[in-house]
Amino acid sequence: MNGKVAFKRPDSLTAKEFTYCPGCLHGVAHRLVAEVLDELKLTGQTIMVAPVGCSVFAYEFFDVDGTVAPHGRATAVATGIKRSLPDRVVFTYQGDGDLAAIGTAETIHTANRGEKITTIFINNAIYGMTGGQMAPTSLVGMKTTTSPYGRNADSEGYPIHVCELLQNLNGVAYLERVSLLTPKDIIAAKKGIKKAFTAQARGLGYSLIEIVSTCPTNWGLSPVESLEWAKQKMLPEFPLKVFIDKVGDVK
């Protein structure tokens, strides 16, 4: 046999099966991060901080040292790790409720300090694990279990645009909003993730990749319908864009 491996599980993922719902894009996002860690040869020196939310078990799926932060506090925990071991690579993986509601202060101040860590931010406009409640990024009019009549801007305000908020902070070295809605988007997302980790490895500052994602289960749509809904509703609200790039070209 002279077989050639065309596709395999990245070394930075464990053999543990994902616990995510059918059609959920966490698995794709995990794989992209793992591929980047493999390619940059960072696996052995990486420490990850999983959040509270659907990806609370992410530390089991990645084959790297890891912990779970209290809800919203992932970047503070990551700061503690990075400041103790400045030569290690540290990343957080957080959802919209975690990062942009309960953890807003930590998010802004970690970015503002230029903490040399990377954040993978999954924005699917809803709380997944707790069962589909309104998120800070929920769209106006969006029905969730805690906005059953649709998010009303008068009383619940507007979706928070995390990248647009962070782009004015000098400590940020790489900031991009990507999506996983088409194969082309997935390829672009991986490039962004690679740049984010490169920013950290080069000590340039804080890096964050916002990933526009879906939640078929709590949106009440099929996986395919979810992709379509995200394209039509999410992307106009959260346009894909490189906000900050202090890295330059990366191979």
């Binding site: 901080v49 209290p70 506090r73 503070a76 700061t79 503690g80 790790i81 990075k82 400041r83 103790s84």
Partner: peptide, 8 residues
Amino acid sequence: NMIYGAAC
């Protein structure tokens, strides 16, 4: 939480 991270 920084303490938690450093303690880890």
